[in-house]
Computed example of a mutant assay.
Amino acid sequence: MNETAVKVKELVKRYRELLAVDHLNLEIKQGEIFGLLGPNGSGKTTTINCILSLLSYDNGEIEIFEKPMKADAYDIKAKIGVVMQNVAVFEELTVQENIDYFCGLYINDKQLRKQYVEEAIQFTGLEDFRKFYPKKLSGGLLRRLNIACGIAHKPKLIILDEPTVAVDPQSRNRILEGIMELNRQGATIIYTSHYMEEVEQICSRIAIIDNGKCIAQGTAEELKKLIKKREIITIDILSVTADDIEALKALPHVYSVTFEDSKLTILCDGGSHNLVRVLDYLQGKEYSFGHIHSALPTLNDVFLEITGKELRD
């Protein structure tokens, strides 16, 4: 069984009257890519800052690699790499100099540091830009530099906060592939993103935080089983009568039928052959229809049903 990389127990953080984190519990195993999701103001960033001991908190316990995390726990901090949403590099240093500086905070041996810096440059695909200054880099390259600075010292725990925000698709794919490669090399990763498809693609487990509490936790498939919506059927159709909408609602496993802008949307809470029954009914009533689509729920559906909010709210 994997050992625990991060354990958060009954974490409480207040900002005067505001309860930002409310008795939060998390346990992240070594070797996981753990997704941390929450709308703006959910307490997600505060939780990360408490885990890093950048913030004091009112109650609770935090352990990293089964040791208490404190502000002066430098031996633990040396094993952590952090890539925050806002790019944090020195404008007056080149790509290579930036990576060397951040690596040097943890690696004193000059020869080893030189090796690690070169490996970080190659890992992030910055070989052709090593002498560039940050202001000359595109948004995607700047993100990759930010990641290189955070992972050059080969940390065992990496916290990535929105690493693909506002980057081009090519850079996004490169970053996601890099994250999965870091994980294959043994790093435990905490990953936050507003892009649900990324989280579903790379995360082994996911926690949804809202109002400072962890309200759901599990694999993507486990989270999808928590909600009523199990199948979404959409059919392009010019019109449908109110009586037929009611008849469709009466079909097994159908719990919602709506018709808007020439699109019939039918939500099912499970079962099989739902689409067949719907089409049989419509064909029996001699309806003509166009595009038909049946889809399983997404993480966005889960998030919306559990929190009542879009992730970008």
Rank of each mutant, 00 (worst) to 15 (best):
E198G: 03
A148G: 04
Y191N: 10
M69K: 11
K9A: 12
D261W: 04
N274G: 01
T188R: 13
F289N: 03
E119N: 06
L267A: 00
S256Y: 14
F129M: 07
L176P: 08
F123N: 08
G104R: 09
L267P: 00
H293L: 13
I206G: 05
K154R: 08
L296M: 14
K29E: 13
N183V: 07
Y106H: 09
K135T: 15
L145I: 08
A148S: 07
A250E: 01
L299S: 05
L279E: 06
G140W: 07
D244H: 01
T241L: 06
R144T: 09
T219G: 09
P252G: 11
E305V: 02
G271V: 01
T124R: 01
C149Y: 08
R113M: 08
D161H: 10
E162N: 04
I48S: 00
A216D: 01
I206Y: 11
Y255P: 03
D22S: 13
S138L: 13
K213G: 06
D100T: 12
A120I: 04
D109V: 04
I147V: 14
D58V: 03
D161S: 03
L264W: 01
E3D: 14
N86P: 06
I237C: 02
I215A: 00
G104I: 01
K156P: 06
K135W: 15
T188L: 11
G38E: 05
H293E: 14
K79A: 08
D243E: 15
S138A: 15
L275G: 00
I99L: 08
D128H: 14
H23P: 09
E222R: 05
P297D: 05
P39Q: 05
D22C: 10
T94L: 06
D244S: 02
G60I: 02
A220M: 02
D313R: 13
R174Y: 15
A5F: 01
T258K: 10
L145F: 06
Q201A: 14
K309W: 13
N173D: 15
K224H: 01
